[in-house]
């Protein structure tokens, strides 16, 4: 099955990003294709490489970057939401990109499921 994920909250403030990540890992482990994770609202701040949490905490942007590079999951931040929040190509972690809402529409159409995580 092909699955798209829509993530609408930023890292750490809410559990949404963590649940989305765990869900994506579990879906891949079950043999499904996680086609893309689309970041909207504050969700766009999931993928800044300026993130530098304490050593004993999870690094959320690094985790999304690894997921992208290991499993070919597209990690895409909405351009309009990114511009509002100071996210641009210069600050993105590897394996992530900025794109438009049209891409989310494509993701919604081409996948068997779109699963939203938010708060």
């Amino acid at each position: 099955m092909k699955i798209g994920i829509l993530l609408k909250e930023g890292p750490y403030n809410h559990q949404a990003s963590d649940t989305a990540f765990k869900f994506a890992e579990a879906a891949i482990a079950k043999g499904h294709t996680v086609d893309a994770v689309f970041l909207y609202n504050d969700g766009v701040t999931n993928v800044t490489k300026l993130m530098d949490p304490p050593q004993d905490d999870r690094n959320i942007s690094a985790r999304w970057s690894e997921l992208s590079q290991k499993h070919g999951v597209e990690i895409l931040a909405c351009i309009a939401a990114s511009k509002r929040r100071g996210i641009n190509d210069d600050v993105l972690v590897q394996g992530t990109a900025i794109t438009g809402l049209g891409t989310l529409t494509d993701i919604a159409i081409r996948n068997d499921r779109l699963v939203t995580f938010g708060d």
Binding site: K22, A26, F117, G118
Partner: peptide, 19 residues
Amino acid sequence: IDYDGFVGLVEEHQVNSWF
């Protein structure tokens, strides 16, 4: 259920996420 079970439910149904 665990995350694996969550994925199992998503295999069976479209999803309506309330938050």
